[in-house]
Amino acid sequence: MFRSTLRSSFTLLRSTAPAAVTSSRLIAYRYLSQEARSTIQKAIDSSPVVLFMKGTPQLPECGFSRAVVQVLDLHGVPPEKMRTFNVLEDAELRTGIKEFSEWPTIPQVYVNGEFVGGCDILLGMHQSGELEKLLIANKVIPEELPEPQQATAAA
């Protein structure tokens, strides 16, 4: 069910993308083969949290990727619920994921198959508290137990 909604949203997005690609520099936006698309879909489905990044969590090779790793770590996303893909080791993935997500930059974060955003969005959601809500709603991290009565503790 989820898969079909994802598909239809892509069709929508695709129809709004400009048909004429004027510059050969825009190689990232070439048409994705069905095979490449299904490889990426498998990667996205491989774990509750999937991060496409430059480098690895232990050794990020870009400040934006590093920031996203740190934010996810800060929220206590357990390693068994997260998979990362190093786009620097896979040129096809590096261009393919940009087209797949219709998103021009790396890193990219997916939660339960849903595209969440890149570094700016993740940091923004972290600051606003939305990221924690999203991770809890997707059962990536446990819900925080309500704090014991603050008033009595303070008194």
Binding site: L26, F64, F115
Partner: peptide, 25 residues
């Protein structure tokens, strides 16, 4: 936020493709 960023990404598609990094608020 995601939709806002997508608007900008779409508008500046050609430019962003030529950059190493692009960050937006």
């Amino acid at each position: 936020t995601l939709k806002k960023h997508r608007l900008i990404n779409e508008l500046l598609k050609a430019e962003i493709a030529q950059m190493h990094a692009f960050s937006q608020k």
